[in-house]
Amino acid sequence: MALIAASALGWVIYHYAYDHFAQAAADQEPPKPVNINDPLKASVTALTLIGAVLAGLYAYRKQLLAEGDAHRADASQLADRYTTAAEQLGHNQAAVRLAGVYALARLADDWTEQRQVCIDVLCAYLRMPYEPDPSLPSHKEGEREVRHTIIQVIRDHLQEPDAATAWCLHDFNFTGAVFDGGDFTTSHLRGVVSFSGATFSGGTVSFDSATFSGGDVSFSGATFSGGDVGFDHATFSGSTVHFTDATFSGSDVNFDNAKFSGRDVYFSGATFSGGSVTFTGATFSGRDVHFGGATFSGSIIYFGRTTFSGRDVYFSGATFSGSNVRFRAATFSTGTVSFDHATFSAGILTFPDATFSGSTVRFRNATFSGTRFEWGPLPVPAGA
């Protein structure tokens, strides 16, 4: 069939070429006979070009098929690696689970299309029930080491945003996870980050110098009940930050020198009933800061040298019933500082050396029954 088709095509090309050269010869004065070699050469040249094009198309098609087979083979191999790593993470022995952590991290580096899936599996492991107290029956031997290794692996992939294997642009879901330590220092997080409902129950969890510059950051409903949690020099530059309904009942949490320059910051409904929370040298230069409905019943809350230069600061409806809340040398340079409908029944609220250079401080409908106020050398604002 191919030979017949080629012969027919050659016959057509030959006759077309012959007619072309015959017409050209007849147009000459005087007319000349056709040189048979001319149409033969033209036919051979045309057939050669057509054959070369067909050979190139065949080679290209063959290459595409080979690349498709190689891609499918690679995908199959990566899927097999994923299955193996997932099985290792579910193993009873901690050493095997550790191997699964490293295997899944390497797979995430190699498998760009499914990197988020690999990250989701590691985060899901941290969300699984965990008992950090070794004296309780539900405690698993070696589990703390596995979980801290996952945190370390995640941190290692968040250090260089421009690296080919960086995970900085991906989302991290730690909702409801239990942390009894962990290091996220100098991490760059540009996706959505959720610690909603997480429990910080011991050890040291550090977000020092971390950068949150992409999606929203949520610690809504998180519980800080033990250990130290640090956000020293952390930067929140493009996100809405939620600590809504968080509970600070026994941890020392510091936001010292942190910078909030994105959107709104929410501590609405948060409970401060133990430990200490410090914002020494912190800067709020984005939009509104919300502590509305928060309860301060037994903590030390320190806003020393904190700068509020965004829009409004709300403590509306907050309850101050036993905490020591200090705004020493704080600066309020824009907007309104509202304590409207707040309840002051015990504790200390102080503003020594604070500067109100562009703000209005309001205490409309606030209730005072036992809180001690200190304003330092500043005149007491109207309504206080």
Rank of each mutant, 00 (worst) to 15 (best):
V193H: 12
D245G: 06
G214C: 01
G230E: 03
T175F: 00
D245M: 02
S187F: 12
S220I: 08
L189F: 15
S218R: 04
A246M: 04
F200A: 01
S209C: 07
T204G: 00
D171P: 07
A210I: 09
L189Q: 11
N173C: 13
F207K: 10
F212K: 00
D228C: 04
F174W: 09
S239Y: 03
G226R: 08
D232G: 09
T244N: 15
S196K: 13
D180F: 03
F248L: 06
R190H: 15
S209G: 03
T185N: 11
F172R: 12
D252C: 04
G238S: 03
G227D: 11
F243Y: 01
T186P: 01
G221P: 05
V192C: 00
R190M: 14
D252I: 01
S251V: 08
F174G: 05
F195A: 06
S187A: 15
T185A: 10
F172T: 10
A177N: 12
D228T: 15
G238C: 05
A234D: 02
V205A: 03
S196V: 05
G191R: 09
G221K: 06
T223S: 14
S251W: 08
D216K: 12
G203W: 07
V241E: 00
S218P: 09
G214S: 08
L169R: 15
G191H: 12
F195K: 02
G203T: 04
T175E: 15
T199R: 15
F212E: 08
G215F: 08
F236D: 10
L189H: 08
A222V: 06
S225T: 11
S206Q: 03
T204I: 13
S187W: 11
D245E: 14
V193G: 01
S249K: 00
T199K: 15
S206F: 00
F212H: 00
G226H: 08
V217C: 11
S194A: 14
D183W: 05
G182P: 13
F172M: 15
A234G: 02
H188Y: 14
A234H: 09
F172G: 11
T199G: 12
D252H: 13
F200E: 03
S196H: 08
R190E: 13
F179M: 01
D228A: 13
N173R: 14
T185D: 00
G230M: 08
G182D: 08
T204K: 11
D232N: 14
G176M: 12
C168R: 11
V241K: 07
V193D: 00
S237Y: 05
G226V: 06
F231Q: 07
S213L: 02
S249A: 10
T247I: 14
R190S: 14
F200Y: 02
D252L: 07
D183V: 04
A177H: 11
F212C: 07
D180A: 14
R190A: 14
F224I: 03
G182Y: 09
F212M: 02
S251E: 02
V178M: 13
G250W: 05
H233W: 10
T223G: 09
F184S: 04
T235S: 09
N173V: 13
C168F: 14
S209M: 05
V193K: 12
D171C: 09
D180Y: 05
S251N: 05
S239W: 09
F172N: 10
G182W: 07
A198Y: 01
G215P: 13
F248H: 04
T211Y: 04
A234C: 07
S251Y: 10
F200N: 05
F231V: 05
H188M: 02
